[in-house]
Design a protein around this nucleic acid. Structure first.
Lengths: 205, 205
DNA sequence: ATCCATAAACGACATTCGTCGTCTATATGA
DNA sequence: TCATATAGACGACGAATGTCGTTTATGGAT
């Protein structure tokens, strides 16, 4: 009984997925991700274990959906949109990334040092950032000679943003997020402007 | 019987790990990563299953070590070193990334569409790139006011490089690697130069 | 050549995983 | 309201996982 398509209109599907994601989120407040079994999740969600596999291939897929969905929701709540060029929209994306990582922080040091957890989170968030940026580069699909197209730029920029923010987040004595946003923006703006930029970027020291 | 420290000098340890990595690599030429069980690996490696867990917490950790080690080996073979500034060393890193992703390509469409595989690979390679770049920024640990320090820049740059190359690799009708290297270099150079760069980067169109 | 530390082999264990078929409950449209 | 399609519950299954404790074999140092 695999779920037919991706018919999110059916309230039963939404309900079950919400329950599963909620259960995982709740369980992760006390345990590490890989100490949580699918049984634990379905038990806490009052959902049959077999039903879990109707929705997600494994708990990694659930985590992915949860993180990606959560970050996307945050962007939506803040009405963040990237208009293709650069100005404050990029800042909003960067700040959202900082905030999301911060809000995801677990209580004490029982934190995540597992094998697959962090990479999954990284991938989910990076993908979400990439979508926002890609959407910004919508119409201008110009594949001009030698110029990187929008997809490459969006990929480079989104990964750069996340990499920088992750590094910031992992550092001791974190600088305030607003300050970090400025630094990252400074780093990433030239990347986002590369569609029209000159090839040799001369920087004054 | 967990392995004492990380005493790679003991030939027994090196032998076992090499066997395990070789077995996984070999098995992945025919099966997808998540279709390979730990049993399969240890069987092919003629290593006891319990011994596997003396070396790696799970097969994800093995994959991580394999990919990270492989990429690091490639860089070492090519004597790639990043001297802190920018010139052709960055190109070498980018090209190596292109080549490594290409060489990792599996035969046919039985490819990797699993949940945790790609993120793990991404993380391992990104980390390896980050190490090279970080090493380049060794001595100059200047935390000047408002300026991003070397770690942030290295993180942003390494993630940007990998994100761009990954996008390139996933695209249909791939442009030649050399051409890609140029594009990525153009995108990333301003990031790498940010330590001394001015805050407002004006680009002529 | 001998001794000691330690890696690897081995068997066994409870637990979890992923999948299956069947039956019940619920949503949607006529 | 009723019919139908489909999601969820349930029980069961073989396989894989992760962890033991014990025994054997190997490497390095004296």
């Amino acid at each position: 009984m695999p779920i037919s398509d991706c018919d999110v209109r059916d309230p039963r599907i939404r309900r079950t997925r919400q329950l599963l994601q909620g259960a995982l989120k709740q369980l992760m407040e006390k345990k590490g991700f890989d100490e949580v079994s699918v049984q634990d999740i379905t038990e806490a969600a009052t959902v049959n274990r077999a039903t879990f596999y109707d929705h997600y291939t494994d708990k990694f897929a659930l985590l992915d959906a949860m993180v990606g969905g959560g970050f996307h929701k945050l962007l939506h709540e803040r009405a963040v949109r990237f208009d293709g060029s650069c100005p404050s929209a990029a800042s909003a994306v960067i700040l959202a990334t900082c905030d999301y990582l911060t809000q995801m922080e677990t209580g004490d040091g029982t934190c995540q040092r597992q094998s697959a957890f962090q990479p999954l989170v990284d991938a989910a968030i990076t993908r979400a950032i990439g979508r926002v940026l890609s959407d910004g580069f919508a119409g201008s699909e110009d594949g001009l000679k030698g110029k990187p197209d929008g997809k490459i730029i969006a990929a480079a920029a989104s990964w750069a943003i996340y990499g920088a923010v992750k590094e910031w987040f992992g550092s001791v004595n974190r600088v305030p997020a607003e300050e970090m946003v400025e630094m990252v923006l400074e780093l990433v703006l030239p990347v986002l402007s590369a569609r029209v930029g000159s090839s040799a970027v001369a920087l004054s020291s």
